[in-house]
Amino acid sequence: MADGILLERNGIPAVSICTEPFRIPADAMAKAYGFPGFQYLLTPHPVASLTLAEVRQRVVEMTPRILAILGVEE
């Protein structure tokens, strides 16, 4: 979250991604950085133990949502 916010503040579009159990810490971190409305992406937990194919599937699933937050029209 911090990285995403700092990139945005430096003019670099960024989308932070975290898994669902981290929603509350993510919101708390955004608040700590004075950016409570910071838009980020949630994905199901876990990620660390996924296979390569499952990771690729996640990317496919998340890409439209990442682009939506970035305001990119396909």
């Binding site: 981290f22 509350i24 810490p25 708390a28 971190m29 700590a32």
Partner: peptide, 10 residues
């Protein structure tokens, strides 16, 4: 530091 459980303390 506001490191409360289930918030900033994960």
């Amino acid at each position: 530091f506001g490191l409360r459980p289930r918030e900033l303390d994960q």
